[in-house]
Design a protein around this nucleic acid. Structure first.
Length: 354
DNA sequence: CTTTCCCGCCACTGC
DNA sequence: GCAGTGGCGGGAAAG
């Protein structure tokens, strides 16, 4: 099973011109865009790669989003890993950094605790309080991300509010070796990204040299992050449903080939649906390609993936599988529960059609 | 070109 | 010895 989240199947490309166009693009930028012909069908897969979507910042946001409603929660690594659809290693990165904010702590193998978003505020306060000489770095491995992160935060709180990463790296461990320094800067990028994801810091430039740097935002940033999250949550929850229902096309199959069972009907609807959406996407894509006529194309959004969560094998009752669907290899547990909405709506149409 | 930083190898750690 | 952790730096994407 080489199910790759970045693989999206499309069944379009009717004419050769399309095909040529896409091949051209893919050959120019293999990492971003790849075409695979799985079988004799006209089914084409694009390998889509978008660095931003995979960034620690995004992942960290997702991570916190999963936990933000809890004042207390045990985080199970396996679970969260699956939920976020990401390799374990990345979760460690985030957790290690968040540990410096004391929101998460290791409990035991595979288990970490989350102690509520507001503990971040408290931790910040402790950092700010110079008297208490707040130090979580004792008894920690000296080179850990957690320690580095703690140090980084301290720099902001106790020295000045804007830092270049290189500057910070130098300050934080007086490295002489250029390579070691480079590594430290890499780590600081990681840290900066998760701190940024929470709103604690933001990217700026030094006024003097224009060099990229990070600026402390602190509590206001945290608050903003929280509020935005909640607001989006609301908006999405009301929109999501609408979107799913509206997306269902009225089947054009009424008279000619009246489906005689539900599975068949669902299959046809979904074919139609996919066809329609992919065509739209295809048009958009080609449009953009023409516009920029460049070698880097990062256009297809993850939304497309959502479309695919309604492939029959998982929506229908386990009767027979539908043949002649444009594709069959659909990912598994990540598919959200939109399915039900879609199916529900399809049932309605089905009844109406008979 | 520089800046950013994803990815995953493999060392370490604690059972 | 083994599974869970997590340093670490290559090298590719983004700017």
């Amino acid at each position: 099973m080489e199910e790759d989240q970045n693989l999206v199947s499309l069944s379009l490309l009717n004419d050769e011109q399309d095909q040529k166009l896409l091949e051209k693009i893919s050959s120019k930028s293999k990492k971003i865009f790849k075409i695979i012909y799985p079988n004799n069908k006209q089914l084409i897969k694009y390998k889509i790669y978008n660095r931003k979507e995979k960034s620690l910042e995004e992942l960290s946001k997702k991570f916190v989003r999963c936990l933000i409603d809890y004042d207390e929660k045990i985080i199970c690594l396996d679970q969260i890993t699956e939920e976020l659809g990401v390799e374990r290693r990345r979760i460690y990165d985030i957790i290690n950094i968040l540990e410096s904010l004391q929101v998460v702590k290791r409990k035991c193998k595979n288990k970490y605790s989350w102690s509520g978003f507001k503990t971040i505020y408290q931790t910040i306060e402790q950092y700010a309080n110079k008297q208490s000489n707040f130090d979580i770095t004792t008894h920690k491995r000296e080179k850990s991300l957690e320690v580095l992160s703690a140090g980084f935060i301290k720099l902001f709180m106790q020295q000045k509010s804007i830092w270049t990463l290189e500057e910070a790296a130098k300050y934080l461990g007086n490295e002489v070796d250029q390579n070691k320094l480079k590594t430290k800067v890499r780590r600081l990028y990681d840290i900066a990204n998760v701190l940024k994801s929470i709103g604690l810091i933001k990217k700026t430039h030094l006024a003097s040299s224009k060099k990229p740097a990070f600026q402390w935002v602190g509590k206001e940033g945290l608050k903003l992050f929280y509020q935005n999250l909640k607001q989006n949550e609301l908006r999405n929850s009301t929109q999501q449903i609408k979107e799913n229902v509206a997306i269902i096309p009225t089947p054009q199959i009424q008279n000619l080939n009246k489906p005689d069972n539900f599975n068949q009907y669902v299959g046809k609807c979904i074919d139609l649906l996919i066809q329609q959406q992919l065509n739209d996407r295809k048009l958009q894509t080609e449009q953009k390609i023409r516009e920029q006529n460049q070698n880097q194309v990062t256009i297809i959004t993850p939304k497309l993936r959502k479309t695919y969560t309604i492939i029959p094998p998982r929506v229908t009752t386990p009767k027979k599988t539908l043949s002649n669907t444009p594709k069959k290899n659909q990912s598994n547990s990540h598919t959200p529960n939109n399915n039900k909405t879609v199916v529900g709506s399809l049932i309605g149409k089905f009844n109406q059609n008979l």
